[in-house]
Design a protein around this nucleic acid. Structure first.
Length: 297
DNA sequence: AACCAGGACACAA
DNA sequence: TTGTGTCATGGT
């Protein structure tokens, strides 16, 4: 009997009751880049722990590689406590947003670790999501710490610390296929490691101040700052404007006209309300789903 | 085989 | 302040 086929120990397993939770949409919507679908379940690394997630009706079953009594690290990451209804009902009742929320109902925002999120999005600029995943995979494999996995599984690695990446040469980083982003990542890692920016302190700041602090980091402009504010710190008014969101807003709200990004930012603030970041994520994922559908025809 | 990808930055006008 | 070229890589 192969170990990987054995049922996991009860001490390694838990179940979260959820409503309106689309795990697939959540893990494939370009917030996090390390989840892999394998044999009917999602496998990933949260912090320094391996975890497997299986979704069944109204519950998520999680399996860890080691005995676990406190699961708050995962409950927090997956945001299983929050309910979607107040968010969706806060949205303006317009056609585009209705279509987007229907197309991927149950899509959630994760709550990720700030350094991994920051570094990942520094690597994301003008890259397709598949390529971002490849870069991060190489980076973790080469510079991340080994993470315990169940018997029979391939070795996996934690996302490398800022301290570790600060020690890398630019050439080491370029070898991970990140191109011109290498000096940005190295500089960012150095700043974070030296506490020139204290990522842990940004939770307590007002959004605008946290945004300014993030944008002081090399390679971090408005868009990447907004991603980190939204996906790591939980500032749900943050509204990342990337090429997909530009397309969505132009086509769906501005009759295809060419609109400046700054104006789109102001529009999002006034139009989508306090959970604008959620609206953004629905529009983003919706546009990418649409493209997949039309590409198949 | 061109075109484009969850952008940021230095520089020009 | 706003517009343009550049950066590196590879998917579609």
């Amino acid at each position: 009997m192969r170990h990987s086929l054995l049922a996991p120990l009860a001490e390694c397993q838990t179940r979260f009751a959820v409503h309106d939770y689309d795990l697939d949409a959540t893990l494939t919507s370009g917030q996090a880049f390390r989840w892999e679908w394998s044999d009917g379940a999602w496998e990933g690394i949260v912090g320094d722990r391996w975890v497997q997630l299986a979704f069944s009706k109204d519950s998520i079953v999680a399996v860890a590689s080691e005995k676990t009594s406190d699961w708050t690290w995962l409950a927090d990451y997956l945001q299983v406590e929050i309910s979607l209804h107040p968010i969706l009902s806060s949205f303006p009742d317009d056609v585009p947003l209705r279509a987007a929320t229907q197309a991927c109902r149950g899509l959630r925002l994760l709550r990720q670790e700030p350094w991994e999120c920051l570094a990942s999005f520094i690597l994301s600029s003008t890259k397709q999501i598949v390529q971002i995943r490849q870069i991060i995979h190489l980076l973790c494999e080469r510079f991340g710490e080994l993470v315990p996995v169940p018997l029979g599984y391939q070795p996996v690695y934690a996302f490398p610390s800022a301290h570790r990446l600060a020690q890398c040469s630019e050439a080491d980083l370029r070898d991970c296929k990140m191109g011109f982003r290498a000096p940005y990542l190295k500089a960012a890692a150095t700043m974070v490691d030296r506490l020139d920016v204290d990522l842990a302190s940004l939770y307590d700041l007002p959004v605008d101040e946290a945004r300014i602090a993030l944008m002081a980091i090399p390679g971090v402009g408005p868009k990447i700052a907004d991603c980190v504010l939204l996906f790591a710190y939980g500032f749900q008014s943050a509204f990342p404007v990337d090429v997909w969101v530009i397309k969505a807003l132009r086509e769906l709200y501005f009759r295809g006209r060419r609109v400046k990004i700054q104006r789109l930012q102001r529009f999002s603030k006034s139009h989508f309300g306090p959970f604008a970041g959620y609206a953004q994520q629905y529009l983003f994922h919706y546009m990418r789903l649409q493209k997949k559908i039309t590409a198949k025809q």
